[in-house]
Deep mutational scan, measured.
Amino acid sequence: MTYKLILNGKTLKGETTTEAVDAATAEKVFKQYANDNGSDGEWTYDDATKTFTVTE
């Protein structure tokens, strides 16, 4: 399945997607991506749209 990440950071904004077997796997990928790019904030997940959002 395709999962989407929306970044609403102070310095990093945008979207990216990943293919993953489940939401937990996608979350690990996205959290590593956000960490690698210095983005940290409040995470939410919408199962209906398969979208993670991180807001700083």
Rank of each mutant, 00 (worst) to 15 (best):
Y33H: 04
W43G: 00
Q32K: 13
W43A: 01
T51D: 00
G9M: 14
L7D: 02
V29M: 08
N37I: 14
E56Y: 13
F52Y: 05
L12F: 15
M1Q: 14
F52S: 01
T18M: 09
T25K: 05
A20Q: 07
T25P: 00
T53F: 10
D36E: 13
N8M: 14
Y45K: 00
A48W: 06
L5K: 00
K28M: 11
V29L: 10
T18D: 02
A24P: 08
T11I: 11
Y3R: 00
A26H: 00
A24F: 08
A20V: 03
Y3A: 01
E15N: 06
T51A: 03
N8R: 11
N35P: 03
D46F: 03
K50H: 11
G9H: 06
E27A: 09
N37C: 10
E15A: 07
E42A: 10
K31C: 06
V29N: 05
T25E: 13
T17W: 12
Q32P: 01
N37L: 15
M1I: 14
E19W: 15
T11A: 09
N37R: 14
T44K: 08
E15Y: 13
L7W: 10
V29Q: 06
Y3D: 03
A34Y: 09
N37H: 14
A23R: 12
T51C: 04
A34I: 12
D46H: 05
F30H: 01
E42V: 14
T53K: 04
E42G: 04
G14S: 12
D36P: 04
E56R: 04
K50C: 06
A34Q: 03
V29K: 08
W43V: 02
S39Q: 14
G9F: 15
A24M: 10
A26S: 01
T25M: 10
K10N: 12
S39Y: 15
E27C: 11
Y45Q: 00
G9A: 05
D47M: 07
E15G: 08
N8V: 14
A24Q: 11
L7G: 03
G14R: 14
N8E: 08
V21C: 12
E15C: 13
K10L: 14
F52P: 00
T55S: 08
A24V: 09
F30E: 01
I6S: 03
K28V: 09
E42P: 03
K31W: 06
K31M: 08
S39N: 11
K13N: 09
Y33T: 03
L5E: 03
D40A: 12
E56C: 09
E15M: 10
A26F: 00
V54Q: 03
D46I: 03
T16H: 14
T16M: 15
D46G: 01
T25A: 14
M1R: 11
L12M: 13
A20K: 02
L7S: 04
Q32W: 05
D40V: 14
T55V: 08
M1K: 12
D22L: 02
W43H: 00
K13Y: 12
K10R: 11
Y33F: 11
T44E: 10
E27W: 15
A20G: 03
D46E: 06
V54S: 02
E56F: 13
L12Y: 15
K50E: 02
T51Q: 03
D46M: 03
T53A: 04
A20T: 04
Y33W: 13
S39F: 15
M1L: 12
A26I: 01
T2C: 13
K28N: 07
Y3I: 02
K13Q: 11
T11D: 10
Y45P: 00
E15H: 09
W43N: 01
Q32V: 08
V54E: 02
I6K: 05
K4F: 12
T53V: 08
T53P: 00
T17G: 03
V29T: 08
K10E: 09
T2Q: 09
K28F: 09
F52N: 00
G38E: 06
T25C: 08
K28D: 05
V54R: 03
T2A: 05
D46L: 03
T53R: 05
T49P: 00
K10A: 13
D22V: 02
A24Y: 09
Y45M: 00
D36Q: 11
Y33I: 07
A26N: 01
N35R: 15
V21Y: 11
E19R: 12
T49V: 04
E19D: 09
T18G: 03
L5F: 05
E19N: 13
I6A: 03
K13E: 06
V21M: 13
Q32A: 12
K28H: 08
L5P: 03
T51L: 03
T51Y: 01
D47C: 07
Y45W: 03
D40E: 12
V21H: 11
W43D: 01
A20M: 02
E19F: 15
D46Q: 04
A34N: 03
K10Y: 09
G41H: 06
E42I: 14
